[in-house]
Structures are given as C-alpha cells and as structure tokens.
Design a protein around this nucleic acid. Sequence first.
DNA 1: AATGAATGAGTATTCATTCAT
DNA 2: GATGAATGAATACTCATTCAT
Lengths: 210, 210, 210, 210
Amino acid sequence: MGARKLTKRGIKRRAQIIGTAFTLFAEQGYHGTTVGDICDALGVGKGVFYWYFESKEALFKELLQSSLFQLRRAQHAAIEGIEDPRVRIECGIRASIDFFRADPGLLSLIRIAARYEEFASFVNRGQQIIASDTAVHLKEGMSRGTIRRGDPQLMAHGILGALFHFVEVYFGTESESHNGRPQLADEAAAFCMQGILESAPLPNVPPRLS
Amino acid sequence: MGARKLTKRGIKRRAQIIGTAFTLFAEQGYHGTTVGDICDALGVGKGVFYWYFESKEALFKELLQSSLFQLRRAQHAAIEGIEDPRVRIECGIRASIDFFRADPGLLSLIRIAARYEEFASFVNRGQQIIASDTAVHLKEGMSRGTIRRGDPQLMAHGILGALFHFVEVYFGTESESHNGRPQLADEAAAFCMQGILESAPLPNVPPRLS
Amino acid sequence: MGARKLTKRGIKRRAQIIGTAFTLFAEQGYHGTTVGDICDALGVGKGVFYWYFESKEALFKELLQSSLFQLRRAQHAAIEGIEDPRVRIECGIRASIDFFRADPGLLSLIRIAARYEEFASFVNRGQQIIASDTAVHLKEGMSRGTIRRGDPQLMAHGILGALFHFVEVYFGTESESHNGRPQLADEAAAFCMQGILESAPLPNVPPRLS
Amino acid sequence: MGARKLTKRGIKRRAQIIGTAFTLFAEQGYHGTTVGDICDALGVGKGVFYWYFESKEALFKELLQSSLFQLRRAQHAAIEGIEDPRVRIECGIRASIDFFRADPGLLSLIRIAARYEEFASFVNRGQQIIASDTAVHLKEGMSRGTIRRGDPQLMAHGILGALFHFVEVYFGTESESHNGRPQLADEAAAFCMQGILESAPLPNVPPRLS
DNA sequence: AATGAATGAGTATTCATTCAT
DNA sequence: GATGAATGAATACTCATTCAT
C-alpha cells in the first residue's frame, strides 16, 4: 500500500481526504474524528479511506509531518540571507507566530498531536529538530559573543516553549479573537530575545535548602 | 454520593484508589487506563470504584486539581517573605522545577490532562491562575523599575510556557534520565529571568514584508 | 426471614420502608426506584432493607397485594346490604373510581405492576378475583332477568377494562388535573351499566368475510 | 445514519432484524431482550445492529409505530363504505379483535410498550388517536339520535379500554388457548355497543354518603 | 476504484444482594 | 438491629478495520 500508483483521479481523491481530515481533526480532535466522519463528509464509502491510507493514524501522522515541515520551511525562508544570528532567531520567532496566526488549524493539529501518546514522540522529535535548527544560530551567537553562553539546545527549547505557549494561549480556541493580539509577535520576540542575549547579572538568589 | 460517610477502612480504600489511579494514569494515560485496570490492580470488584467516585472523569479531575493545588502551594511556600519581586519570581521557577523533578508523575498528569478536550479548559484555567500569581510580582517589579515594562500576564505566560516545556523535554517519559539535569533549574531561571528584566536594547530587526 | 420477630421499633421501621417505597415506586416506577433510593430517602444503610424484606420484588408484591386488597375491600363496603344486583355493580364501579381518585398512587402501583413481566401474572390473578366478585352479581341479575344473558366472567372483564382505562386516562400522570372530571363516575357507570343491562336489539351487522 | 442507502442485501438484513426483534420483544419483553440476543439469533456481530438502527429504543419505537399503524389501517379498512355509524363502530371493534387474534405478538408489543415509562406517552398518543377516530362516529350517531348523548372521547375510551382488556385477558400469554374464544368478538361487540346505544333508563342509584 | 456490509473487541456504569464489623 | 463496604454479572454502544461484490 505504501507505493500505490495513483491515477489523476486518485491523486485528487487523496488530496480531498487530506483536506477534509485536516479540517475535521483541527475542529474535533483526533479521537473526536472518526474515519466514518471523514468519509461521510466526502460522501464516499469507508473502503475509499483504506484504499488511500493505511490507517487513521497513518493519515494523521502524514498531516502532522507536513505541518511541521511547513513550519520549518517558513522559518528557513524568513531568515535566509540574514547575517546576524540574533536577528535570524528573532525573525524565526516572528515568522512562526505569523505562521500560526495565518492558519490556526496548524496549531490545532500540533496541539492535538501532542495530546495523544501515540504521537507525542513524533511531536517531540519534530520539536527537537526545530530546536536544533535554532541551536545552530545560538551557537554562532555565542562564539561571536553576542549571545549569552549556555546550553544551546536547552535555550532553544526555552524559546520554543515560550513561543508555543504564547500562541496557544492567544490563538487557541479558548481565546476570544485570533487577530486581537497583533503586538504579540513583538512581545514574544522581546521576551525570548532577552532570555538569550548577553546581559547584566541577576541579583543574588538565596541558596535553597533541599 | 456527594458526601458519603466513610469509615477508617473506607478512607484507606479511597486513598488506595487515588494512589493506584495516579500511577496508572501517569504511566498509561487517561484513556489508556480503564476502571477495570484500577480495580484489578487493587484486587477489588468494579463496584468499589463507584462506591468512592462518581466516575472515572471525576476521579481524574480530583487528581488534577490536587496536583495543580500542590504546585501552587509549593510556589507560595518558596517565595514567602522574599522582598524583591525578581527574586520571588526566580524562586518560584526553581521551586516549580524541583516540584516536577521530585514527582514526574505530576507533570505526566498535567500533560495528560491537557491532552484531552474534556480537561483542556480545566488545565487552562489552572494555568491562568498560576500566570496571574506571577503577574502580580511582575507588576511590582515594573513599578520598581527592575522589570521591563510590558503586558504582565503575557510575560507570565512566557515564563510558564518555557518552564513547562523545559520540564517536559527533560523530565518527560521520553527522556533518558530524570536526574541527569541538575543544572536545569539554573538555566531555566537564567532564561526566564533575562526575558523579563530591564536590559539593553535589541539590535534592529529588518521589517518583514508581508 | 419470613417470620422475623420484630420489636416495636422494628415494626415502625418496616412501616417506614413501606411508606417510602410506595411513594417512590408510584413516582419513579419499579425499575426506576433502586433499593438505594429507598434507603437514602430514609437515611439508613442498605442492610436495613434486607433485614425487613427478602428482596425488592418481595416488597413490591406486598405493596401490590395490599393495594388490590384495599380496592376489593372498598368495593365490598360500598355494596353491602344492597338488594338489586345491578345497583350493587354500579355502586362498585363508583366506589372504584372514588378509590383511585382518592389515592392515585394506588393506580400508579397497579399500572406499574402490570408493566413488568414479573408481576403481570400477579395482577392478572387479582383482576380475575375482582372480576369473579362482579360475576356473582351479574349471574344473579341474569337469573332475575334484569341483566342481559352472556358469559358473566367475560362481561365482568369488560367492566373492569373500561373502568381501569377510564381511570388511567383521566387520573393518570399524563392528564392535566386529577379532580377535573367529577362527572367521570357518572359516565363510566352509564357506559358499563348499559353494556350489561337487558336492552333493545342492535341493528344488523353485515357478516364479515374472513 | 438518518438515511442510509441500503442495497438489496441490506434491505433484507434490516427486515431480518425487525422480524427477529419483534419475536424476541414479544416473548421476552423490552428489557428482557438484549441487542446481543437479537444479533445472536441472527448469527451476526453486534455492529450489524447499529448499522441499521440508531439504538435499541429506536428499533422498538419503529416496531410499535408500525403496529399501531397497522391496527388503525385494519380498522379503517373494515368500516369503509358503511353508512350507519353504529355499524361502523361495531365493525371496528370486530376488526380489532380479529387483528390481535391473528397476531398476538402485536398485542404483546403494545402491552410491553405501555409497560415502560419511555414508551408510555407514545402509546398514550396512539390511543388518543384511535379514540378520536371512534369519537367521530359516535358524534355522528349522537346527532342522528341513534347513540346515547355523552362525551364522545370519553365513550370512545370506554370502548378502547374494554376492548384491550378483553383481548389481553383472552389472547394474552397467560391464557390457555388463543383460539378458544371464537365468540369473543360477539360478546365484546355486544358489551361495547350496548354501552353507547340509546336505551332505557337505569334504575335509581341510592346517593353515596361521602 | 468504490461501496455498503460486517466484524468484534473494548468500556463505563448500574444495582440487587451479601457480609464483616 | 444497623452500617458501610464489597461484589460482579450484565448491557448498550463505538469504531477502526476488513471484505465480498
């Protein structure tokens, strides 16, 4: 089934399924969307689904992978040709926020994926990759002395975590208006950038007793 | 069912169920853990479960609520009597990390809860509360001029997001060793604190074309 | 368990259970009322119920039997000393309607009993007895020539059926007001009495072809 | 699920399920018949049931509705073209008795439906409709002076009640022989018809003291 | 390619009844 | 007499997947 040869019509069908499934998953979640729902929405029999996809899980993974890939591509496009690693990172952050603002369904998908044990490791892997992308810039900044020294992967995860959380809280279904926070990108950038830049020392923290 | 009178034996049983359920939920997820699993693990009939809890969902919510409550309590305890709001925040961060390091099951539970539509709003509410706690200190720091001006709630969510993500990536079930990152607290604190402190300006970012 | 000796307190308890159960059964039906409901309503443990009654079914049968017995007693009382069998029958009809009007719970109980396979034969037996009571008067009327000749038991069932149906339709929970049909007794009596009295011939009915 | 397209095979299956369910419900009652029973009797998996019916309750309602509809149709067919309203009524009565004699399962079904709160209102509505059918003829007879004046709906319920009770007592599962009462129709007709015809006055009834 | 039909394991919940204390 | 705890069989319904046509 992996390498079925599809006719033109078949290619169209496959794309239809992907499109419908994307919408339904984003709206109703993974377990909330049944294979039957997808087929009903398309007005086709259930057999069709299994003609094009091995399983519901496989379809979802494909969707997820392509979403993460698109995100990564948007980030790459945004930083192309920029010299200063700090600026590269900030542009990546802003591009990510724009990405999710443009299609909140993509966020939904990732969030939903993270919700289920079956996909958690998948999402994790994706996040590691994106973090590694960022870590490269961090390392460069560190060696230039413009970014505070530290574990680059860890710092990258800090950025990622803050970023996703911002987006989730302010673009998620729970929140009132998806467009209401145009300055979100500025605030997120400021928060994350300060977190990694070379900077003044913190006040002393009393030692914990544990 | 609201206010059953429990004997000593009953109280013990209830606690047993809570303990067993906690472990199983943390290991196998919510849907992955059946009421039957819990009862089997205790060697009791299924009716017992429903003697003490209204439903599986009710039990899970109780577990979740108490976990969030414990987290908040740990944070409060850690910052009691500290004068400088910046220090209060940092101590809160460190206390949170210690909290999850001490019992990774608690993180599991919260993560799992966030995974399901049924509990998402519950977790969201909890996060808003914790963010609001932090926002208080941020506001104070802003008025003292030691913390950069900005939307306190938003900044608080930045901290929360980074924090949870750190913990998730480094203490989560996916990761190799739960104790392997003792310096995580330092790095997390550094990242988050810099993100909010008053500081030098960023380099100019070229305007996006969109 | 059949012949437990009860203390005064025990007798009171037993009566309490009967009273509460009567109300609950009448309101919520047989399967709709659990042993737990009854005990909760009394604020006692479930063990109590089984101290006084062998089973839920046994209690219900006891309730039912006593209701049917009361109905029969009311009928007997109403016709005592009346000479004309036609008048005896009519008085019985009126007394029955008054009986159910006075405590619609009794009707509920009988209706509910008839609803369940477990009690249907029980109710049937009760109805046969009541029908037989009536049949005696019918026979007497027939031999006096004041009541139309026919199968007395069958005619008695006609009366019974019409009577119960009237009461059910007009006093049942579905109906608007329990007191709204004071003339129901007159109409029911008229209908049933005419059905049995000696009378003019019917018009010819064309023979069915079947 | 509303409007599944069924193939020939599907139509056959659906009919099989209806037939089997009808028999089982009539024999074992509603709660006494499980979805599993029905599927087992057909040798199919449980999913099949839910492919054709939304729920057990929905199937039962369908069965019930169609039974009541058939009864009404039989009554209409029996009285078509008859001039005298009295004769129309009597023919309706005889047709009803024949109807239930022919398939006692239909009576079972209605009785069973009346047994459960879920369906009681359904059955009640059906009875009101049938009573209204009859009331039309009664009114006509009253205006012609051939039927005694009175509340037509109430009189119609009298007929209905007597009729159902006759049938129940003599065709019900409890009774010995279903064919043993061929003259039942005559007696029932006589009883009901006399109950409504214009006729001689009743003897005086002594006033009740209450 | 496509369809409708079939599968059947899987699960939360209820409740009459029993029992140890 | 009374209590709270425990039992466990029983049941409707879901849904990913397979299959005959």
